[in-house]
Amino acid sequence: MAVTAQTRGTEWLASAGLRPTRQRLALAALLVGDGENRHVTAESLYALSATSGEKVSLATVYNTLRAFCEAGLMNEVVVDGSKSYFDTRMDEHPHFYWEDSHALTDAPADALRIEGLPDAPAGMQVSRVDVVIRLKRA
């Protein structure tokens, strides 16, 4: 039996204990429905939902992406302090940011070495390190 985008989306939400509202189901199906990982902005997911026939406001897309992050389903990757991308791939890995197209893609992690992190302030611990490698045409 073939797994549908709706089924994948429903299972993804259930894995985090999120209530499957119509909007969450629709956005989850777009994000994980084909089994591939995605890097999206709220605006790109909003546009994708509109072309798929789903009526979801941009505010709902933002709120839903935040809920998915808080539930541990996605990571937010901030570029330039103002542009957020949301990544469905949850393992630690670096990213390429393509300055000409404003795209975020996974970068190979095999050659990356992070050494010498500063100690976290008292009472804190490092939760993760984001590596964004910016690319521009030579």
Score class of each variant (00 low, 15 high):
Met124Glu: 02
Asp87His: 08
Pro118Lys: 02
Ala107Ser: 11
Leu30Asp: 13
Thr21Asn: 03
Ala103Met: 15
Val126Leu: 11
Ala109Glu: 13
Leu31Thr: 08
Ala5Met: 06
Thr64Pro: 13
Pro94Gln: 15
Ala111Asp: 13
Phe86Arg: 05
Leu117Trp: 05
Pro20Gln: 00
Lys55Glu: 15
Gln6Lys: 04
Val61Ile: 12
Glu54Phe: 12
Trp98Asp: 06
Pro94Trp: 13
Leu13Met: 02
Ser44Phe: 13
Asp80Thr: 13
Arg38Gly: 10
Ser15Glu: 14
Thr64Met: 04
Trp98Ile: 01
Gly53Val: 05
Thr51Pro: 02
Leu65Phe: 07
Tyr46Gln: 10
Glu11Val: 14
Leu104Asp: 09
Glu70Lys: 03
Gly72Ala: 03
Val78Asn: 10
Ala111Thr: 01
Arg8Ile: 02
Leu30Trp: 12
Asp34Gly: 00
Ala109Ser: 12
Asp130Phe: 00
Leu73Ile: 05
Ala16Arg: 05
Glu70Ile: 06
Phe96Ser: 07
Ala71Lys: 05
Val32Gln: 08
Ala107Thr: 01
Val32Thr: 13
Leu104Cys: 09
Val132Cys: 01
Lys55Leu: 14
Ala67Phe: 11
Ala28Cys: 11
Ser57Thr: 15
Lys136Trp: 09
Gly53Lys: 03
Arg24Ser: 10
Ala16Ser: 08
Phe86Trp: 13
Asn37Cys: 10
Asn63Ser: 05
Thr60Cys: 10
Val77Arg: 00
Glu54Val: 07
Val126Ala: 06
Cys69Ala: 06
Leu18Lys: 06
Glu43Cys: 09
Val79Leu: 01
Gly33His: 04
Thr51Ile: 06
Thr7Asn: 05
Tyr97Thr: 00
Met90Ile: 13
Ala107Gln: 08
His93Phe: 04
Val132Gly: 02
Arg89Ser: 09
Val32Pro: 09
Tyr97His: 01
Thr88Glu: 00
Ile114Ser: 10
Ser44Thr: 15
His95Asp: 14
Leu117Ala: 03
Glu99Tyr: 04
Val61His: 07
Val61Trp: 04
Ser57His: 11
Cys69Ile: 09
Arg22Leu: 04
Ser44Val: 14
Val126Ile: 15
Arg38Asn: 08
Gly53Leu: 06
Ala5Lys: 03
Glu76Met: 03
Leu25Trp: 00
Phe86Ser: 09
Leu58Tyr: 07
Ala107His: 08
Met74Cys: 14
Leu25Tyr: 00
Leu112Trp: 10
Ala107Glu: 08
Gln23Ser: 07
Arg24Cys: 10
Arg19Thr: 15
Ala103Trp: 07
Phe86Leu: 08
Gly17Thr: 06
Thr10Leu: 12
Pro94Asn: 11
Val129Ala: 04
Leu65Tyr: 02
Gly81Cys: 04
Pro94Phe: 14
Thr51Arg: 11
Pro108Trp: 11
Asn63Phe: 04
Met90Asp: 08
Pro118Ala: 00
Ala103Gln: 14
Glu11Ala: 12
Thr7Met: 02
Leu27Gly: 00
Met90Arg: 10
Tyr62Pro: 02
Glu115Cys: 04
Arg113Asp: 09
Thr51Cys: 05
Arg24His: 10
Ser52Thr: 03
Glu115Tyr: 06
Ala71His: 15
Met74Asn: 12
Leu58Asp: 05
Glu92Lys: 13
Val129Ser: 03
Thr41His: 10
Arg128His: 03
Ala59Val: 14
Ala47Ser: 15
Thr64Phe: 04
Leu45Gln: 08
Val78Tyr: 05
Ala71Thr: 15
Ser49Phe: 14
Ala16Gly: 11
Arg38Ile: 15
Gly53Asn: 03
Arg38Phe: 07
